[in-house]
């Protein structure tokens, strides 16, 4: 157990911070730790959490995905057309929504791999295209999502918020097994050293393509879950999520230079970010001062993350 905590120091710290924050939040909330409070909190956290997962897959291979928010907007508008009607149609619609996200990610990956352009620039340009497509679908917010389905996904099962169950599924049923697969290891290899990965026989192009496709899938899932929470389609949701997803992965201990961090950390970072925002709401700080405090806390948290510099024994160690 101690060994595990040591080798996953970053995730453990993020999780501890999250628990403290959550306890404070539930303590200060006028309605206390009720299922209702937990459900709303978990829903907000999971939207950003899935976006952070998307960002994680791009960042872990030493890339970045500035189109996360745009893919969310696009899949959200698609969902607002497809997620109403017969049960079979809705099921196909959900697959189509996530599939659209995967296609967006695949497009990003293909341009990055075969066009040999930096991910930050590629996703900047494709984000504009994806937002344009979303605007074509929904020039103004509208559409509907089946209420029964939305309720099932955003309320609770036996008192446990569904969003937390989904989080657990993502971690235990997807991430933990996935990390041990060849592709899972390949992501870290590619992020740590592309040359070494290539020389050990990893098909770096395929791995990078897969990483960005996974990013697209998770952005699609985030858009899908966002649709369940809001039950409408809106093409304008993107910008905030892109930047917040980057902040979330960094808070969760994922290094932007690639190869370090985990999906659990990314999720924890997103939950921390959203919990801080919710805490602000009930903290008694004047509402006009809240954005400033949010910014200060974000900067403070990131600066503490940067305190590793102080432990460097040799000045050269900081130039990594």
């Amino acid at each position: 157990m101690l060994e595990y905590a040591k080798s996953n120091r970053r995730e453990v710290i993020a999780a501890a911070v999250l628990i403290v924050l959550l306890a404070t939040y539930l303590g200060t909330h006028p309605r206390g730790a009720s299922t209702y409070v937990m459900t709303i909190w978990a829903n907000q956290c999971l939207i950003l959490g899935l976006a952070a997962c998307a960002q994680f897959f791009a960042v872990v291979v030493r890339g970045i995905d500035l189109s996360v928010g745009a893919v969310m907007a696009l899949t959200n508008t698609i969902a607002s057309y497809l997620l109403d009607g017969s049960a079979g149609g809705i099921a196909l619609g959900m697959i189509a929504v996530v599939g659209a996200g995967a296609l967006c990610g695949l497009l990003n990956g293909a341009i990055i791999v075969f066009g040999r352009i930096q991910p930050i620039v590629v996703t900047l340009a494709t984000a504009s295209i994806f937002v344009g497509l979303a605007l074509l679908l929904r020039p103004t917010p509208g559409g509907a999502v089946n209420y029964d389905l939305a309720d099932a996904m955003t309320l609770d099962v036996l008192g446990i918020p569904t969003a937390l169950i989904i989080t657990a599924v993502v971690v235990f049923a997807f991430w933990l097994p996935f990390r041990r697969t060849g592709l899972g290891l390949g992501l870290y290899a590619l992020g740590s050293s592309e040359q070494a990965a290539f020389q050990s026989g990893i098909d770096t192009r395929l791995v990078r393509l897969a990483a960005f496709t996974l990013a697209g899938i998770f952005a699609g899932l985030a858009g899908l879950f966002y649709s369940f929470v809001t039950t409408t389609g809106d093409a304008g949701i993107g910008p905030g999520f892109t930047l917040n997803s980057i902040a979330a992965v960094v808070l969760g201990g994922v290094l932007l230079r690639g190869g370090v961090g985990s999906l659990v950390g990314a999720l924890a970072g997103a939950f921390i970010l959203k919990t801080i925002a919710s805490l602000m709401f009930f903290s008694g700080i004047p509402s006009l001062a809240q954005p400033l405090f949010e910014g200060l806390i974000l900067a403070g948290a990131i600066a503490i993350g940067g305190a590793d510099v102080l432990r460097a024994r040799n000045k050269l160690e900081v130039f990594k």
Binding site: I111, V122, L124, A125, T126, A127, S128, I129, F130, V131, G132, L133, A134, L135, L136, P139
Partner: peptide, 12 residues
């Protein structure tokens, strides 16, 4: 909508 799409495509 199309302005966004054309803008992104031309930059790419």
């Amino acid at each position: 909508a199309w302005r966004n799409i054309i803008f992104g495509a031309i930059i790419l």
